[in-house]
Design a protein around this nucleic acid. Sequence first.
DNA 1: GTCTATATGGAGATAGAC
DNA 2: GTCTATCTCCATATAGAC
Lengths: 250, 250
Amino acid sequence: MISNAVQKTARSRKPRGPRPAGGRSTRERILDAAEKLFARKGFHAVSVRTITKAAGVDVALVNYHFGTKQALLDNVLLRRAKLLNDERMERLRAAIRLAAPESPTLEAIIDAFTHPLLDRSDRGGAGWKAYFALIAQVNNSSEMGGAMMTRYFDPVVQAFIAALRPALPGCDERDLYWSYHFLSGALTLTFAETGRIDNLSGGLCRSSDLESVHERMVPYVAAGFRALCDRRDRASVPPATLRRRAAQHK
Amino acid sequence: MISNAVQKTARSRKPRGPRPAGGRSTRERILDAAEKLFARKGFHAVSVRTITKAAGVDVALVNYHFGTKQALLDNVLLRRAKLLNDERMERLRAAIRLAAPESPTLEAIIDAFTHPLLDRSDRGGAGWKAYFALIAQVNNSSEMGGAMMTRYFDPVVQAFIAALRPALPGCDERDLYWSYHFLSGALTLTFAETGRIDNLSGGLCRSSDLESVHERMVPYVAAGFRALCDRRDRASVPPATLRRRAAQHK
DNA sequence: GTCTATATGGAGATAGAC
DNA sequence: GTCTATCTCCATATAGAC
C-alpha cells in the first residue's frame, strides 16, 4: 500500500518552476489549447479543466494568467486579431499606393480584405485554422457577435469600406454596408469548414479547399457590390415594398 | 416551524394533470422556451433547468418528452424545418410552373428560396425569429454544422440547385455549389441579427430590417452566381494558381 | 403526464503552500 | 509562477410516488 502510494506520487510529480525556454510559455500553451477547443466545440461546451489538461498545465493557471474563462476567450481572439489587422491595413495601403492616383479596382480592395484571412487559414497552421473557425461562431452568435466583431475588427472594416467608396462612385451608403454584411457572412461560413458543401456536392467541393473559395469569392462579391450599387430600376422589388418605402420616406 | 413548512408546501403546490386545452401543451412550452434560449445564448450555455423554469414546467419533463437535451435540440430544429421545407418546395414549383416551358429567372429561384425564410423571421413572431437565429449558429458550428444542416435542409437545397442549372446553362458544377455556399453564409448571418451592422453603419442600417435585406440579397446573390458561371477569362486569378490547377487536372 | 427527490458528476474560481 | 486542496454551486438524468 505504502509503496504503491509512493510510486503514484513519484509518477505524478511534475517539474516545478517555469517551463524550458525552448518551448512555448504556459500562457501560450493555454491560449493554443483554448483556441483549438473553443473552435471545435464552442466556448460554453469546453471547460477550463479540459483546456488545461490539453495544454498540460495546472487548472489554477487559467485563473492566474487570465482571471476568468471569458477573459481567456478575449485573449484568444485578441492575440491574432492584432497581427491580422496590421497585415490587412498594410495590404490595403499597398493596393491604394499601386493604383494611385486612381482608386484601386473593387477586386483589388476585396482581395486585400479577404486574402490575408483565407491564406492564413489555409497555410498558417492549425492555430490559425482554429482561430478562424472560432471567428465564424462568434460572428454568428446573437449573444456576442455584434459587440465582439466590432471590438476586434472595426478599424479595418471601416478602412475597407472607406476604400470602397471611390471604387463605387455614387453608391448608396446602405447598399455599401449591406454588401459588406453579405461578404462577411459568406467569408465566415467558409472559415467554419463544416463539411456541409462536401455532403451537398457529393464530394465535388471540399470545405477545406480555401484556394477554390478565394478564387471564387472575389468575383462573386465584386459582382454583388456592383449589382447593388448600380441598380437604378427596381423591377425586381415587389410593388408593395415600393409603396411602403415611398410612405416611409414621405 | 410546522405551520411554516405547511404554508410553504401549500404555496408551492401546483395543479396536477395535463394543462388546460386552451393553452399550449407542455411539449410545446418546452420547445418554445428551448428555442428562445438556445438562440439567445447558444445550446451549451443553457441548462434544462433554465429552460423548464422559463416554460413553467417541471425539470423532469424534458426527460419524459424528449429523453436528452440533445434530442430536445433536434426536435426544436425539426419542428419548423418541416413547415419551411414544404413552403419552399411549393414556392419553387410555383415559380417553375409560372415560367414554363422556360426556366424561371435566377432572381425568381433565389426569391423562392430566401423569401419564405426572411419573411417568417420578419413577420412570423418571436418563435420564428429565435429559430432562425439558432440556425445561424448551427450552420456556422464546426461541431455540428455539416451534419445538421444536411439532415434538415438537404432535399430543399438539392431541389434549389437543380432548378438553378437550367437558369445558368453551362455553369460549372463547382461554381454552382460554391455560389450556394456564399448565399448560405450571407443569409444565415442575417438571421443572427447581431447588431453588428448597426454599430458599423452608425445606425444607418439595422440588423432587424429584414425587408432591406431581402430587397438587396436577391440582386446581390444573382449577380454573384452570374459572375462565377459566366467568367471565361481568368484574369483575376494569379498565375501560380493557374499553374497549380493545370498540374492537378493534368 | 406530472411531481418529489436524489444519484452522480463536473463546473468555475480561489486560498495558500511552495 | 506553479501546485494542492477545496469551496460552492450547478449540470444532466432518472427512479418512483401520485
